[in-house]
Amino acid sequence: MDNALQVKDLCAWFGEHQVLKNITMDIRRNSVTSVMGPSGCGKSTFIRCLNRMHDLTPGFRVSGEVFFDGRNIYTDRIDPVLLRRKVGMVFQQPNPFPRMSVFENVAVGLKFNGKKRSRSEMADVVEKSLRMAALWDELSDHLDRPGTSLSGGQQQRLCIARALAVEPEILLMDEPCSALDPTSSARIEDLIEDLSDKYTIVVVTHNMQQAGRISDSVAFFLLGELIEMDTAAKIFTNPADKRTEEYITGRFG
């Protein structure tokens, strides 16, 4: 199978504290991979390693390799700025840029990434991105509204549209629904399943039901280690590791 990302022996530390221990996994292209585990298992740290979001965190360091397009993102003179255009991210708290309209929020990535674009090209990209994020029908007449005036679920979809506008290959999502109500969560989940036709999606979640609903593959983390990774069906019907079984049956964690 075609892999969008290959992680080999990834370790990570905050100061002296090791938070990831020898993680090795392949992330299949155009699929949804969920990373689940109890709080503090390193799942968020892990996906932030995939687009080098930790670069600015003082005291953070990694060892091991993460291959994207055949190149190790930590050594082969990869510019993290260019990497992040290819590996986008959606955060736990919807974070549309304050003091920017819906339109500007979606256009902002393109506006600042160097290439000059005409107003109409920009409008096309914004429309396309909002459509993909299932937001166009609701907002096509309100593009000048401030992004922060939307509902929580709409804000999160706006953030997804914003990430899609720079045309990434991979979308990392760090608990994208944990700040949303069930209906908004369901819409985001649906959206994730739709987007997986075109994008590789890695979702961190502490909600196993959600992991079951949306994922093709599920990785279970515990105390910084990857305990088990398999298809969602396998993990949720017959996990190989006893600790996975205990976690998903609610016996601990």
Partner: peptide, 17 residues
């Protein structure tokens, strides 16, 4: 007072620091 999430959101779009 600008939340870290705003900076992170921008950096995650591949916008230079």
């Amino acid at each position: 007072t600008v939340p870290v999430s705003v900076r992170e959101g921008a950096l995650a779009l591949g916008i230079e620091r």
